[in-house]
Amino acid sequence: MSRPEYQAPPELYYNDKEANKYTSNTRIQSIQAELTCRAIELLNLPENEPAFLLDIGCGSGLSGEILDEEGHFWVGIDIAPSMLQIALEREVEGDLFLQDAGHGLGFRPGTFDGAISISVLQWLCNADRKSHNPVTRLNRFFTTLYSSLRRGARAIFQFYPENDDQCELIMNVAMKCGFQGGLVVDYPNSKKAKKFFLCLFAGINGTESKPQMPKALGVGENEGDEPKTVNYSSERIQERNTKTKGNRKSIKDRDWILHKKGIARMRGKKGIPLDTKFTGRKRKSKF
């Protein structure tokens, strides 16, 4: 099957049918969850502090739900109305914007403590209309993104580069717009698990001298750790969850979920799951 970004512009490709298919596919859900967790890790946020984050290409809110679970607040932008509609139905906590990243962002300087973007950046390199110039669009996007981040914040883009030239183009434009950083390639020797993360630093904050590039997974001494299945990072996510447990109060603790379900029932919603002893537990099966 050819890559979706070759077939149609994203707002047309992700019509109601594709958007539903994408969101309800458990394989996609688990990949998306892994990539999001890795992106959050690469953001290197201060521990135990709720952050205000931007999700670029938030889609139906699959990544946003993980940001919710991690106790962060977020704003998501997406160009596909069908995807946003599903995000609404799934009652994600973040604010949703219908927006073309290539037209730039309209957030005040220093708004966000970080930005993530999962499987979106390659779309931005397309020229879907005659008037589209990928370099102009990337330039507008990175300039306004840089400004919307507070100094020292990071933007992490997991993406599927088409080739080396595309990688280089994206990085060149990002650097011209003020970012520092580079590419982290996890599991570079595994055809299945290899993942590209563009890690951008929006300046540095006081104490650091120079931002340190994060270490890739599955290289050097960790080379033997190459995952056997796509669920490679589930143990790492679990580990992370146990590590942060107890320190940070999740925004969705059991009481809160019960409260929210109660409100939904009062509004006459159907299909609200019954409360059980499992309500509000970390959903292991998700990964």
Binding site: I77, I79, L84, L88, D95, L96, F97, L98, Q99, D100, G102, H103, G104, G106, R129, S131, R140
Partner: peptide, 14 residues
């Protein structure tokens, strides 16, 4: 609309 701001621009505004 439905809580979602439409931030799309015309090509002449970009």
């Amino acid at each position: 609309r439905d809580g979602i701001p439409n931030m799309l621009l015309n090509e002449s505004e970009t």
